[in-house]
């Protein structure tokens, strides 16, 4: 149709990170948070001999941190 222009993606230049980069960033935050604090928890486990409980807590905390980071860095509407 002649008068039917496809809408330009608005702005188009300065502040648009593309989807692929953001996706990897999000996944990276989640995995890093989990692995890093899980590792700290594992060290605590080795120290206190608590049978995986501290690792579990560390993983959950790290995951919470990862989610907070994703929300703060990517999930704020611009």
């Amino acid at each position: 149709m002649a008068g039917d222009q496809t809408p330009q993606p608005s702005g188009g230049s300065d502040d648009v990170p593309s989807g692929a980069g953001q996706g990897w960033t999000a996944l990276g935050y989640l995995i890093t948070g989990m692995v890093f604090w899980g590792f700290i928890g594992w060290l605590v486990d080795q120290w206190l001999d608590s049978g995986g409980i501290a690792t579990g807590i560390g993983v959950v905390l790290g995951m919470a941190g990862g989610i907070i980071l994703v929300v703060r860095r990517l999930g704020t509407p611009t």
Binding site: T25, G28, G33, W37, G65, G66
Partner: peptide, 27 residues
């Protein structure tokens, strides 16, 4: 330093450091 309240920063800064400076080249 992500935009977040100060009391969760200790939780977040190591994650930021890892994901920005270690995981990126590795991945």
């Amino acid at each position: 330093i992500p935009p977040a309240p100060w009391y969760i920063l200790p939780l977040l800064i190591p994650i930021e450091f890892f994901s920005t400076f270690l995981v990126r080249p590795f991945s």
